[in-house]
Design a protein around this nucleic acid. Sequence first.
RNA 1: GUGGGCGUAGCUCAGUCGGUAGAGCAUCAGGUUGUGGCCCUGAGGGUCGUGGGUUCAAUCCCCAUCGCUCACCCCA
Length: 417
Amino acid sequence: MIKAIKGTKDILPDSIGKWKYVENIISSVFKYYNYSEIRTPIFEETLLFARGIGEATDIVGKEMYTFEDRSKTSVTLKPEMTASVVRAFIEHSLGKKHSLNKLYYISPMFRQERPQAGRLREFHQFGAEALGSSSPLLDVEMISMAYDILSGLGLKDLTIKINSLGTPESRKNYTQKLREYLKDKKHLLSGESKERIDKNILRIFDSKIDNDIEVMKDAPLLLDFLDNESKDNFEHVKSLLTSSNIPFEIDASLLRGLDYYTKTTFEIISGKVGSQDALCGGGRYDLLVEQFGGEPTPGTGFAAGIERILIACEKENSFVVPESSINLYIVCLEKMLISKAYELAQSIRRNNICVEMDYIGRSVKAQMREANKLNSEFVLFFGGEEYSEGKVQLKNMKNGTQELVKIENLVNKISGD
RNA sequence: GUGGGCGUAGCUCAGUCGGUAGAGCAUCAGGUUGUGGCCCUGAGGGUCGUGGGUUCAAUCCCCAUCGCUCACCCCA
C-alpha cells in the first residue's frame, strides 16, 4: 500500500472544519490591520534560501528538500516564507509602488527533520512581513497580530518572549566579549557547550545542564551591548507593548535560528503542546533586502505554525467548530423515481439551497437517519400519490411538523417563505 | 543523525501464562405497508505490520525489517 510520505499528513473531511475556522480568523485579523495576501511559488532556486536564511543554519545545512530539476537547476521546496517574499518584493519593485508594503500569507512549508509532536515535514504557516519601515510600531504590530489571532482562537496558555539581537556589528562585538569571558571557564562547560563556543556561542545560554547554567549566570548579556539604534527600537517596542496591554517577558536567551534577524525578535510559546512549544516566531530584518540586491529596505515579520496551534487549541479546548448542516434531504420513496428526484435536487440546488439525497438505493429508514445525521433542516418525501398530483410532503426536522407542498413552491418554502 | 515506546477489524482498544481472535464506535439491514434523533435485534468486515527462527502448534517467545510515535538537536 502506498502511504503518505513520512512527516506529511492528509487533512481529512473530519478536520477540515477546524482548519477553515482557523484560516478565517487568520485572514480576518490580517484584514483589520490592512495586510494584503501574497502567494509565492512552492519552490525556489536553492540559492535564495541558502543566502537568505544562512548557510550555517540547521535549516539550510540539513533540513531542506533540495533537488535538481531536469535542466539541472537546484531547486528547493520552501522551508520558510520570508526569503520568498523579499525576492518577490525586489523582483516586482513593490517598494516603488508603495513606500510601505504590508503583506501576509498562509502556505505549506517543507523541512526534512525527524517528525515528532508539533513537527512535520510538510507543515503550514501563516505570517506577515512589513517592508519599508524601521518603526518599532511595526514590530509591535507583528506581535499584536499574532497575539490577536492566537487569543481569537481562544488560547490562554501563551507566553510572549522578546529579545534583541542588535545589529551584526554589535552582535559580533558581544560574542567577542563572551568568548573572552569563557576562555578560562571552558573546562567547566559540558561537551556540547564547548562545541558551541565556535559553532554558535549564544546557544550556550540554552543549555539545561546545571554546570553550564552556573557558568553562564555571570556572563555578559547581549542586551547590554546593543548599539543605540537597536536599544531605542527595543525600548520603544517594550513601552508600546505595555501600553497595548500585551503581556510579555524579556528572554535574553531567545535566539532565532535564522541569520537575517536584527534588532527586536520575539516568540510566542504555548504551555500545552509538548516540547516543540513555539507557536510563532519573528523579528526584524533590516539588512535582508539589500543583501539580495534590492534598495536598502528595513523589514519586520513573523511566522506561526498552524499544526502546533491546532494542538494547543485541542488541548485547551479553545473553540468549537459550528456543526455543519444542509437545507434539504430528498428521501426517495420509490426506486423508480430516483432520476426524477435527482432532477429535482439539481433544480433546487440552482437556487443556492444545499440539497442532498440518497444515491445508493438505501431504505427509507436509512435515508431518514442520514438526513438526521446531516442536520438537514427539511426532508422532502419524493413519490406516492402526492407526487402524481404535483405535490410532496415537506417535513421540518427541527419541530417534526410536515405539510403538503406544491413542487413549484418548494424553493420559497425552504428558503424561509 | 542518536535514543525510548508501539504496531490485533474503517476508528479506539481488549485478549490468548503458545492451541490461528473479541468489545465499543462506525457501516449496512431490520424492529409491520412511505418517516429521523433514544432504544433493541442482526449482518458484513481481520492472512493479529512484513520476513525468518524456536515449537507438534505462534497473533502471543526470539531475531530481522518496515512503519508509526515520543524525545534529543533545531525550529513553526
